Simulated scan of single mutants.
Amino acid sequence: MKRLDQRGSAAFEFCLVAVFFFTFVFAIFDLGRYAITMQLLRALASDGARATMIQCYTPQVTQSLSPSGCTSVSTYYTSTYLTSVPSIMGLTPTLSASDSGSVLTITASLPGFSMMTPTWSGLNSTPTASTSIPY
């Protein structure tokens, strides 16, 4: 019986497997990048909340009175962390605050962030993290 020619079968099998393998590798890389971004935003929100608590909380605030003027985080947050640490893929994060009566919420976001793989592109276009400070 004559043997069939099997030249090129390994290359063909590699092409079949490589598509799924590299898609899987890039998806893992992209999700890791997203997780690192979220962790940096959580750290930024916590750091901004700490700076606000140190600078803005007066004895009146600790007696359950509203902290007047504490929603301008940029006046309290003078650390270089905002500009130096999360230079994530050339994007600069933003830090904002909102007062909802009895809770001051510090929010960090990264506008312009996008996932690289098309599978995850709709996951979250602007990742945000927030920290709440009750008063």
Results as ranks from 00 to 15, higher is better:
52 T>N: 06
53 M>Q: 06
60 Q>C: 12
85 V>A: 01
59 P>L: 11
92 T>C: 07
122 G>N: 11
57 Y>C: 13
119 T>H: 07
107 T>V: 00
106 I>L: 13
110 L>Y: 09
105 T>E: 02
75 T>E: 10
122 G>E: 07
122 G>W: 08
110 L>W: 06
83 T>S: 05
81 Y>E: 00
120 W>Q: 12
59 P>K: 12
105 T>R: 09
100 S>I: 15
94 T>A: 02
118 P>Y: 02
65 L>C: 12
53 M>R: 04
128 T>G: 01
72 S>E: 14
124 N>T: 12
96 S>P: 09
116 M>E: 01
89 M>H: 12
78 T>N: 11
118 P>G: 02
119 T>L: 14
85 V>Q: 08
103 V>S: 13
74 S>F: 10
99 D>W: 05
72 S>F: 13
91 L>N: 08
114 S>A: 14
103 V>M: 12
51 A>K: 00
54 I>A: 10
112 G>F: 07
53 M>F: 08
88 I>N: 01
62 T>L: 15
114 S>T: 12
81 Y>D: 09
76 Y>L: 03
91 L>Q: 01
54 I>W: 09
58 T>S: 10
54 I>N: 05
112 G>P: 03
123 L>T: 00
113 F>H: 04
127 P>N: 08
87 S>P: 12
115 M>S: 07
118 P>Q: 02
102 S>M: 14
119 T>M: 05
116 M>Q: 06
99 D>C: 08
54 I>R: 07
73 V>H: 03
104 L>V: 15
84 S>Q: 04
106 I>G: 08
100 S>W: 06
86 P>W: 05
117 T>R: 05
56 C>H: 05
51 A>C: 05
68 S>T: 14
63 Q>E: 14
125 S>N: 06
68 S>W: 13
91 L>T: 01
86 P>R: 04
109 S>G: 14
123 L>H: 11
82 L>W: 07
107 T>Y: 10
76 Y>P: 03
84 S>Y: 04
58 T>K: 04
91 L>S: 06
64 S>A: 15
112 G>R: 02
79 S>M: 09
117 T>W: 01
70 C>S: 00
80 T>G: 11
65 L>H: 13
80 T>K: 10
77 Y>I: 08
89 M>T: 09
112 G>A: 10
71 T>V: 13
68 S>L: 14
121 S>I: 01
115 M>R: 02
129 A>S: 01
107 T>Q: 13
51 A>E: 04
116 M>L: 15
